[in-house]
Computed example of a mutant assay.
Amino acid sequence: MARFHTLPVAAVDRLTDDSVALTFAVPPELREAYRYVPGQHLALRRVVDGVEVRRTYSICAPAPDPGDDGPRTLRVGVRLVDGGAFSTYALKEVNIGDELEVMTPAGRFTLDPAPGMYAAVVGGSGITPVLSIVSTLLAREPGARFCLIRSDRTAASTMFLEEVADLKDRYPERLQLVTVLSREEQQAGLPSGRLDEERLTGLLPALLKVDDVAGWFLCGPYGLVQGAERALRGLGVPRTRIHEEIFHVDSEGAPRSAAGAPAHSTVTARLDGRGGTWPVQDGESLLDAVLRNRPDAPYACKGGVCGTCRAFLVSGEVRMDRNFALEPEETEAGYVLACQSHPATEKVELDFDR
């Protein structure tokens, strides 16, 4: 089960005018609990005006070797969001020595390092988990190569510019780096403009042999990720080779399911070895129903993006408003996002421990 612990801030590094990297120190007794695989994220928690606020940020550092005793530090990238309760705090108020509540790592947008060719299409802060994936892969697997295609507004707004450049210098033969700026012309490289489905359909086969790529990692805003997926599927890439993580979803841009709920519903949930049954109030999600009785239920974003609240549907039926975190094989196996699930039968049973 995911757990929150209070960790001290060891470093605050300004990346751009609107982004920062926060590094947390991990004490020896918690290093195993915070062991992570490349691509995972952390949920940070604080209370604002009496209301608990949680936000999820991807780990951007290489993962510790399996034989190590766990990470000594955790580094995440935070980009400012207009009106963001947590991102504004991170950029303007957090200092070295401050203590924040940090959840243990979660997420399945990951890569177990193995030989082969891999590629990513990222936009903006979507570089954050991919930076961990690339740096870990190239360090551990001499037989691995990676093509990184990244889109940013301008050079000045590009997160982890130096870190990616250092990787390119360290692995010049194994890391192919392609940068596209949407609002600024470059002296060399590709013309400016957005990376949409049409452009990627022509660009990707020109950069590499699409069929040779063992895994594609798409991360960033909803429009970019969806366009990249459609381009790859149109080029014949199997769905099983495409991995996605959405960072930003416009409220109008993503579909929601619409169906009525039974008049009286209950949810039975097993969590950390203990179970209970509670009523589901009209219009609330299964996660909110569980949280009213079990505040330790896992969640981070409540937007169907991070996957922290994933649970196994033991019995009953649910409808999910959105799903940007679970792979098709996970939903087929019976997993749902509790934050987006509403009862479609009078009784629903979830297991958070599976």
Score class of each variant (00 low, 15 high):
Ser135Tyr: 13
Glu163Ile: 06
His264Arg: 08
Arg75Ala: 04
Phe324Arg: 06
Leu15Tyr: 07
Pro105Arg: 13
Phe86Lys: 12
Ala144Val: 09
Arg256Tyr: 10
Ile149Glu: 00
Glu329Lys: 03
Gly126Asn: 08
Gly316Tyr: 05
Ala214Arg: 15
Gly307Ser: 07
Ala43Cys: 14
Asp13Gln: 14
Ala333Gln: 10
Gly143Ser: 09
Gly276Asp: 01
Asn95Asp: 13
Val53Thr: 04
Pro343Trp: 01
Val180Thr: 15
Met159Pro: 04
His5Thr: 06
Phe160Leu: 11
Gly334Ile: 01
Arg55Gly: 13
Glu99Gly: 12
Gly307Gln: 12
Thr268Tyr: 00
Asp13Arg: 14
Val81Met: 15
Thr154Tyr: 12
Pro255Cys: 03
Leu326Gln: 02
Lys92Cys: 05
Leu175Tyr: 06
Leu175Arg: 03
Gly304Glu: 02
Ser87Val: 12
Gly234His: 11
Val237Leu: 05
Asp98Glu: 11
Phe4His: 02
Glu198His: 15
Glu229Gly: 00
Gln281Met: 06
Ala90Gln: 13
Ala119Asp: 15
Leu235Phe: 05
Arg174Lys: 05
Cys60Thr: 10
Arg75Val: 04
Arg183Met: 14
Ala206Gln: 14
Cys306His: 08
Arg310Cys: 07
Glu93Asp: 15
Ala188Thr: 11
Glu163Lys: 13
Lys92Phe: 09
Asp272Gln: 05
Ala228Lys: 02
Asp18Ala: 08
Leu74Asn: 15
Ser251Cys: 08
Arg274Leu: 08
Glu349Cys: 10
Thr104Asp: 12
Arg45Asp: 09
Val134Arg: 03
Arg322Met: 05
Arg150Pro: 02
Ala156Arg: 13
His243Ser: 09
Glu29Tyr: 01
Glu349Asn: 04
Pro221Leu: 07
Ser135Glu: 08
Cys219Tyr: 01
Ser132Asn: 07
Glu349Gly: 03
Arg354Asn: 03
Pro28Thr: 12
Pro262Trp: 00
Ile246Ser: 01
Arg310Pro: 03
Ala259Leu: 10
Val180Leu: 11
Gln186Arg: 15
Asp351Phe: 03
Val130His: 00
Gly234Ala: 11
Asp65Ile: 01
Arg46Lys: 12
Val20Lys: 01
Met320Lys: 05
Gln187Lys: 13
Ser192Leu: 13
Leu167Ser: 07
Ala21Ile: 06
Glu52His: 08
Thr16Asn: 04
Val76Phe: 07
Ser135Ala: 07
Ala231Gly: 01
Pro8Tyr: 14
